[in-house]
């Protein structure tokens, strides 16, 4: 069982940070609503601390998601193939743009995803700050409650759009390649056959020498 460095980084970006951040929204929105809902029983100090911790974790996850995407995965995605290269499997952007049937996945999908995702950490940082600053006292500020909930929902929608587009892009033009990391050494197949190659990983120098546009 092996994984390449690029696969590992992509999984960390999408599943490790992004999906975890996305999953945390249900708890955060429920907590934020409960904190300020009319007639709801007041939060205990412990519950308020838990909500604060939850929101801080979300802020950290949101920033990790966008930074790992923009500076970890995206450079591999947009690497330009050297002249003469016909196999574009290691150059996702060029691969998508090479066919009118897939080009919009880049022109619309990636172009939107790469920017809209950044709205989420900005919005969530504000949500966490206001929630921690005001605590239960936020019930005194109806308009502030509305803003906090609206920005939390906007962050959720932005994350959902970016995450869904990322999943589709990974289906049509996955970021592959890099050094292989053997996680578990499997048994030799019966009959002494040679091990098969991991799909998408080229038996070539680990780092494709792509130029940056």
């Amino acid at each position: 069982m092996e994984i390449t460095t690029r696969d590992l980084m992509t999984v960390l970006h999408g599943m490790g940070f992004g999906a975890l951040f996305m999953l945390a929204f249900s708890g955060a929105i429920a907590g934020l609503y409960r904190m300020s809902a009319p007639g709801a029983p007041p939060m205990s100090t412990r519950e308020q601390s838990l909500l604060n911790f939850w929101l801080i974790a979300m802020v950290v996850l949101s920033w990790l998601t966008v930074f790992s995407g923009a500076y970890g995965v995206y450079p591999w995605y947009r690497a330009v193939p050297p002249a003469g290269v016909t196999d574009l499997s290691n150059y996702p952007r060029s691969l998508l743009l090479s066919s009118p049937r897939t080009s919009e996945w880049h022109s619309l999908g990636m172009e939107w995803k790469e920017h809209v995702a950044w709205l989420a950490p900005i919005a969530m940082t504000m949500v966490a700050y206001v929630t921690m600053k005001y605590g239960r006292a936020i019930i005194q500020h109806r308009n502030m409650r509305i803003s906090v909930l609206a920005f939390a929902v906007a962050a959720f929608v932005a994350t959902g759009a970016a995450g869904a587009l990322g999943a589709f892009l990974n289906k049509y033009a996955p970021v592959r390649g890099g050094q292989s990391i053997v996680l578990i050494q499997g048994e030799q197949p019966e009959g002494g056959q040679t091990p098969t190659q991991t799909p998408g990983v080229q038996p070539q120098p680990a780092q494709p020498k792509g130029e940056q546009p």
Binding site: P42, T45, Q48, V130, K133, Y134, G135, A137, I139, Q140
Partner: peptide
Amino acid sequence: VEAIPETIPNGPGAAAI
């Protein structure tokens, strides 16, 4: 239960929003 403090000015929250 967390005590509700006296009215906090909304300025800091408004600035963040």
